[in-house]
Design a protein around this nucleic acid. Sequence first.
RNA 1: GGCCCCAUCGUCUAGUGGCUAGGACAGGCGGUUCUCAUCCGCCAAACAGGAGUCCGAUUCUCCUUGGGGCUACCA
Length: 496
Amino acid sequence: MAVDPKKPVRVRIAPSPTGPFHIGTARTALFNWLFARQHQGAFILRIEDTDKERSKGEHEKDILEGLKWLGLKWDEGPVEEKSRISPPKADPPRAENPKSQKFGPYRQSERTDIYGKYLEQLLAEKKAYYCYCTKEELDAERTAAQKAGLPPKYGGRCRELGATPAGKKPQIIRFRVPETKVEFDDIIRGKVSFDASLFGDIVIARDLANPLYNFAVVVDDALMEISHVIRGEDHLSNTPKQILFAQALGFEIPAYAHLPLILNPDRSKMSKRFSDTALNDYRAKGYLPEAIVNFLALLGWHPQDDRELFTLDDLVRAFDLSRVQKAGAAFNQEKLDWLNREYIKNKSDAEIAAALKASVHEAVSVDEALLMHVISAERSRITTFGDFWNTAGFFFELPQYDKELLFWKKENDRSKTKNILVRCAEIIKDEPEFDRNAPPKTLIDLIEKEGRGNVLWPLRVALSGLAASPDPFEILEVIGTKEAYARIEAAIGKLG
RNA sequence: GGCCCCAUCGUCUAGUGGCUAGGACAGGCGGUUCUCAUCCGCCAAACAGGAGUCCGAUUCUCCUUGGGGCUACCA
């Protein structure tokens, strides 16, 4: 029903490069991409950079990289020439996998001629007109209307002007809004209707070369033959305006689906005040793209059964746009963390090592073999790759700790603990290496004689410096008996 | 203020005109364990309120309340 079998499915993600790639935009991209894949359609990336002041090349780059990182490739676009990369700094040549992205994005800034043409058409047909009112005049009008409790719409002073009034300059181009109701069928929300007479004549461009968002979108969606506009709910009230423009231009109206917004814990629109909003922040912290994808998919959508874990391929099979929730969804960091742990579980140690190294900004030189051992010891404790270095750092360097930590129970006094550690040191000293599955008999005897906690606790603390860590045998095996001996000696030293 | 959208455990959500309203995360308790994590078992936790329709509403309708979005020469 949502899909006309005769019409190819073509969807787009249309981010504006005025800030870092937003996690909400990433979700919109995901849903679009899934919908395209399900219907053998095309997923298009269009950079909406009509706002020249606020659009930045670095943000565009961030968007492109974010999409690639998530595995959401777009299907068409201009073929990028090398010279197009705006900063002259040449990209480091790297072996690109042949399946990698070969298209650049469409950019609205490169399509101004096209918009100008349609602007002229509307002007010629008297469906749009030049407005000579200054910003100051309009501001005054708006505040007055608002004060009177009326919709803050443009009064239409320049609407019927034949020629340029003497001494005035055209300020903007307005669309002549007809007095009608605009109704459309939203795939997620059902029938939605607006009263266009409340809009006033909408500004569609500063001049022929500078169209505004609402207008450029309509032209692009029509020219790119977008079949389904899937976007955030914040665009719901733009939709009737865009439908009006499309009708005036004789364009076909696409199907619409407005996704619920991602919310802060206080249920306002997600913002930096409560959590990181940039996709890149999560990438930098060491979240896996598959965890992010899975998490985002579950924010506003859910299958009919109780499954929670989905790969991108699973999602292509299971996702259903019409099952998307209407209500906004609060961003839930704990669930993301859980998902990330789940995906880490499925990774091999080698994969974790690779991700770990990638998550570190500065070059960290660690012993490769040691790192692999540490990963196998710590992998069940890691939530993100970023926090690996905090929880597992003690393997590489013993942290400072208080000597009180060495006492298992309060009644275990200094001499008893010290005595046990001295015995441990003696046992370790002559062992060339330690196999946790075959510990020295002398150590087993000691544990049996003194009690597990009495030996294992101080030993573990001596080795890790922490109240919580992997067990001492495991640490012993990873760091080796030589380092272990030194650490136990240090603990004995602390006890005086 | 105006317009529009929304409403099931704390959170993400499943679900039905009649169910002990299900799952997951988080939380609590217990087991395993020297500690933490993992793992296993258990527990607690929701249909916003009021009318109406109906033999019967969490489910359908309306109202209220609450929340959100938009209200730019931003997107």
